[in-house]
Design a protein around this nucleic acid. Structure first.
Length: 284
DNA sequence: ACCACAACCTGGCCGC
DNA sequence: TGCGGCCAGGTTGTGG
């Protein structure tokens, strides 16, 4: 579920609710949620700590603590964080509960149990291999171009590789490639500098707009559907131009949107606007 | 480097 | 209503 825009909104929403709060108690209800140490050690070490900030790197949430350690969360497909009054009934699929020092609880809910908690001295031990932040100044068109050099893998597949650029998932990879007019199947190394300029702009505009719209909320059920910690849904799904729109007319040219598999992931694109003619592939 | 595939989990939806 | 099959926004590990 959550890609960079959804995680960014989660971090922003949690900031006023968590910064300065002290953790009075930790209950891990699904032991395999915690990685890198035992759930018991995790709970003991987090208990009594004050949360000094909320931050994001790629799709990871970072919660620096007053002892220099960092609580790191990845929501994977269906994870959600909510802050609610301690007396509120505990919902189904809640796998961790943190008692805060103001009578509120921070609850982690995850129907598919794919999410992960870490408690580490250095966040780099978890996020160290991530590529550049796509909205930061260090992410330039040239940087993108350089990272694609010599790669024969389809550009869509590489955009999903968090070591190339951090934060894109299936929705925003498809949407950015459409906005850049680039065929998702194209070998990444064949993108020209001009292509990378357009793709760089498309990635940034797509993500920035999605953040402003509160992310994308897909699917009917509240379990799989992204919600802000406040319970609010995002609205960027209304701006999707290709994602989950197979068979619909392309918003630019009217050709039917196609759906294919790339790297085991469903991929949506306009066969006309994102046409690519490989050199030497012309046939009669 | 690259690819396919399984695994981690559960729920929703579709067709029969 | 039930059941099988396929789908799902992410990542990691294995084997070729």
């Amino acid at each position: 579920m959550p890609e960079l825009p959804e995680v960014e909104n989660t971090v922003r929403d949690l900031k006023p609710l968590l910064v300065g709060r002290r953790v009075l108690d930790v209950r891990i209800l699904w032991p395999r949620l915690v990685h890198g140490k035992s759930p018991e050690a995790f709970a003991v070490e987090l208990t009594g700590r004050q949360i000094v900030n909320t931050d994001r790197r790629g799709k990871y949430l970072l919660f620096p603590l007053d002892n220099g350690c960092t609580w790191v969360v990845h929501l994977r497909m269906t994870g959600q964080l909510h802050v609610v009054p301690a007396q509120a009934e505990v919902e189904r699929y809640v796998h961790a509960v943190l008692d805060l020092d103001n009578g509120q609880q921070l609850r982690y809910r995850d129907a598919r149990k794919f999410g992960r908690f870490y408690l580490v001295d250095e966040p780099e031990s978890v996020i160290g291999k991530l590529g550049p932040e796509p909205l930061s100044e260090s992410f330039t068109p040239l940087e993108l171009f350089n990272r694609l050099q010599g790669r024969r893998t389809a550009i869509k597949t590489l955009l999903l590789d968090q070591r190339v650029v951090a934060g894109l998932g299936n929705i925003y990879a498809d949407e950015a490639l459409f906005r850049a007019g680039i065929d998702p199947r194209r070998p990444a190394g064949t993108l020209t500098q001009a292509d990378c300029n357009r793709l760089h702009t498309a990635i940034r505009q797509t993500l920035a707009t999605a953040i402003r719209e509160g992310g994308s909320s897909l699917g009917g059920s509240a379990l799989t559907n992204y919600r802000r910690p406040t319970g609010v849904q995002g609205s960027f799904q209304r701006r999707h131009q290709v994602y989950h729109l197979a068979g619909h007319p392309c918003p630019v040219c009217g050709a039917p949107i196609e759906r294919i598999k790339l790297g085991q992931r469903s991929t949506h694109f306009c066969p006309r606007c994102q046409l690519y003619e490989p050199l030497g592939a012309e046939s009669s």
